[in-house]
Design a protein around this nucleic acid. Structure first.
Length: 247
DNA sequence: AATGGTTTCAACCGCAGCCGA
DNA sequence: ATCGGCTGCGGTTGAAACCAT
């Protein structure tokens, strides 16, 4: 059985919001608060689906939104956070008060990506593009079921892949084929391992340097996604390891 | 001034995760 | 354990604004 749609598609306005719709939404949320997005449109007298109302409120109407250009500090922070988190826009937005995930995503795609490319930095990997081109593109997935896990581990050479690499699917496909064009990986067995970062430095908060001499301490053990700075307790670290909320 | 190409960003879409029944 | 509803997230789209010729 298919899932029912989030809203009744008929008699629903789409596209740009009018001033009147904005006013209705603001007035309703001021009176009743956020939440219950599914029932909100009807209650507020809006011919919109709940999802649309939520998006409009979060990305545009919320009173605590910071409008206007991004500062250099914000630029730096976004770049640093993206190097750790990738396209986790909501997590990045959590570290930038007054900015929304949609806004940061758009800003990244229109400004920062281009800026990094101009500087010769791959926006996906945050490494110099020259370094990437020199380095042999190598993704080896060992499928030999008789090999030991150690052998697999030693042969599993991950390359600097990224979500942005997906548009190179055809190139990837070529590489995955042998010289005669046959597919080398007929039955993939991808073993996923979850393990803590090995670097000792990750035990300490990551300090992001911002322009103007300011710094921001973010620890990925205790702060990931909660929008707060590091609160790690040195002693506690020794006994309980917490990463991504997994103890 | 007109036209066509490019950029920006608000809004949409589909999916995944969470939670209660 | 399963199902269905709701919410939030990330990718994508397309209209409007901007720019170059």
């Amino acid at each position: 059985m298919g899932r029912s749609p989030c809203c009744e598609k008929a008699h629903i306005n789409k596209g740009a919001w009018t001033k009147e719709e904005d006013d209705r939404l603001i007035a309703y949320i001021r009176a009743h608060g956020e939440g219950c997005w599914r029932s909100l449109p009807k209650a507020a007298g809006l011919l919109r689906c709940g999802k649309s109302c939520r998006l409009r409120w979060i990305n545009y109407l919320r009173p605590d939104l910071k409008r206007g250009n991004f500062t250099q500090d914000e630029d730096d922070l976004i770049i640093n956070l993206h190097s750790f988190l990738g396209n986790k826009w909501s997590l990045i937005a959590g570290k930038l008060p007054g900015r929304t995930d949609n806004e940061i995503k758009n800003y990244w795609n229109t400004h920062i990506r281009r800026k990094l490319l101009r500087q010769g930095i791959d926006p996906a990997t945050h490494r110099p593009i020259n370094e990437l081109s020199k380095k042999e593109y190598k993704t080896t997935i060992i499928l030999n079921t008789t090999s030991t896990s150690n052998e697999e581990a030693s042969n599993f050479d991950t390359h600097d892949s990224s979500p942005d690499d997906h548009h190179n699917n055809k190139e990837d496909e070529k590489r995955e084929k042998g010289s005669a064009g046959e597919v080398l990986c007929p039955d993939l067995n991808l073993e996923l391992r979850i393990c803590p970062p090995y670097q000792q430095r990750q035990q300490q908060p990551e300090v992001f340097k911002l322009t103007g001499g300011r710094s921001l301490a973010l620890c990925f053990k205790c702060t990931l996604g909660n929008g707060k700075e590091c609160t790690c307790d040195e002693n506690n670290n020794a006994t309980v390891y917490e990463f991504l909320s997994i103890r």
